[in-house]
Amino acid sequence: MDNEELEITLLLEAMQSRYGYDFRGYARASLTRRIKKGLAETGLQRISELIPPILYDRDFFNKFVANLSVHVTEMFRDPLFFKALREEVIPYLKTFPFIKIWSAGISTGEEVYSLAIVLKEEGLYEKSRIYATDFSDTVLEKARKGIYPTDLIKKSTKNYQKSGGSTSFGNYYHADYESAIFDRALKKNIVFANHNMVTDSVFGEMHLILCRNVLIYFDANLQNHVFQLFFDSLRPNGFLCLGSKETLEYSKEKDNFVAVIKRQKIYQKKKTHRGYHAESL
């Protein structure tokens, strides 16, 4: 192990022991880049120099950890996914009197606002509750505000149109020169909450879980852990939506789900409960 790897290992140990935030199961290459980026912003020289301020300064830690959560993407990323959600999954969800949705690892919230818009347009919003979670309070606060740079809007508008949007994307935000503020009404049924997929437990009886482009940051073990968490958090027949380059194919939970729209990575939890086939019926 070279010094840099050693310093990162020590840093991750420190964060885990002091605050319970466990990044040890993260894919190392991108984590290393993020840590170095955080380091560059502090003006410190070596990764190990981050350990004392992280141990002794909670604000410093909060800022540092927010950096590790932020991934940047526009709204309605993968428009065809949202189209499939709208056309194939929503009709099924409409049959329930009330639906619970978990958007896991929301970062700055682009995905959860996209989802809220789909639910509104499909007449499902009023009977939905969306739990929008992330491990960083700083990042959650940003998501809650729903303010985005205008250059993000241009790309998002195109995506929205391709996703089968039924009105004008401009109806959902107020823009000034630099930023677009999303309609407060979209937030009415969103509960923003701190939850860490690595260390926290099951989250309600969900009809739908969206967790796209978060698992690519995890190693295989951690991915398996999170797939199990999702399985346990879903109702029978509940849906799980992954990112376009993510798959359940190689996980232990594979047999507990059906790939209902394989191309768009939409899976459905099987009706049978865990362990049923193991018993001699």
Binding site: S30, V72, I216, K245
Partner: peptide
Amino acid sequence: APGDYHLLVEKDKTLSLSIDEP
């Protein structure tokens, strides 16, 4: 590299992807 993802090489000689900032 897939469109709109960074492509990274891990120390164990596997590939990984990210949607970190451009």
